[in-house]
Amino acid sequence: MRGAALRLEHVAKTYPDGTRALRDISFAVRPGEFVVIIGLSGSGKSTLMRCINRLIEPTAGRIYIDDVDITALSHEEMRRLRRSIGMIFQQFNLVRRSTVLTNVLSGRLGYLPPSFALMNYFPKDEVARAMANLNRVGIPEKARTRADQLSGGQQQRVGIARALMQEPTLLLADEPVASLDPATSHSVLKYVEELNKKDGVTVLCALHFLSLARRYGTRILALKGGEIVFDGLPAEIDERRFKEIYGEEAEEVEIA
């Protein structure tokens, strides 16, 4: 599997209520990079992530994935393209009442005929693929458990397994560990890192803690007020840059 290349040109998003969440964002990501996006709450990280798979329609600019302009795609073409873009969320976004296995299998829906859904049918090889992915994130024994019975860390691993079902070339991770404790954060991010290193998947990951960003990122993008204020290597973020991104009062907190 090879990672996708991503390029944004002058992307902007203004919400109907007038909020300018993104203003003129341009950057390019090479295949296989692990880009960490940092910034305060409300700096536009989530909006940026959702513009890339068009869960939110950007109001201006162009987005290229492997040189395909996705802003020009029809709804149906976009749906097909989404199959190769995995996404994991801060709140995990699992269907709480469904089993872990069903949640994982739902990652494969884009590849299956919609008529299967009416009968709740999944082919045998897809079930086997789901079990393999659950195995990969270390919770195969939870397959028949209801999703809401799992701990936060386990739920996020189900989220990763669901994204794995898509065989993605690009993974969007919207603050995947913001609801987890430090130890669990590392165990979850290690799976994301493995996906990046082993499978070569390009990763775009929003994180809150600079220490985590430095530990996992190969490159850091900082957003502030909907604009990129920093784009460089993790080592380049010093005290001065940190205050630029997070404001004068900010203190850096360490996460073990």
């Binding site: 393209l81 709480r96 739902s106």
Partner: peptide
């Protein structure tokens, strides 16, 4: 949340 997540996997409206 789950609606957003399943939409993001490329599932159709019915799915």
């Amino acid at each position: 949340g789950p609606i957003e997540a399943v939409t993001a996997t490329g599932a159709s409206a019915l799915q």
